[in-house]
């Protein structure tokens, strides 16, 4: 899969990364290098091998439906750049 400058621009935008236009070509080259490196993996024959979902043999743990957390808005908000009356406050976003 070849990644061009347009793809890099789109991915950067979706990830909210600002990349100057002149960097796109070199980033595309770098990403292509990474992709081709990953593609080497497809040389391995995986026929009949179950996809591995975890490196340890454990099942998904489940919790009971019991309230154990919350009730501490100040802690939740402690890293917020701006907070008023218990709300996070962010620059206006309107639909």
């Amino acid at each position: 899969m070849a990644i061009d400058a347009a793809t890099v621009r789109k991915v950067a935008k979706l990830a909210r990364l600002r990349e100057p236009e002149e960097r796109l070509a070199s980033l595309a080259q770098e990403l292509n290098g990474i992709m081709s490196w990953i593609e080497q993996l497809s040389e391995v024959d995986t026929d009949g091998v179950e996809p591995m979902t975890s490196v340890v043999a454990v099942k998904l743990p489940l919790r009971e439906d019991v309230v154990t957390e919350g009730g501490d808005a100040s802690r939740v908000l402690s890293n917020a750049p701006k907070a008023i009356d218990g709300f996070f406050v962010v620059p206006k976003v309107v639909e």
Partner: peptide, 20 residues
């Protein structure tokens, strides 16, 4: 009573960010 992946309460009418 609690959320899908956490132990915070589900409900209506609590103060802002009190069920987080």
């Amino acid at each position: 009573h609690a959320k899908l992946f956490s132990g915070a309460a589900v409900g209506f009418g609590a103060g802002p960010n009190e069920q987080v």
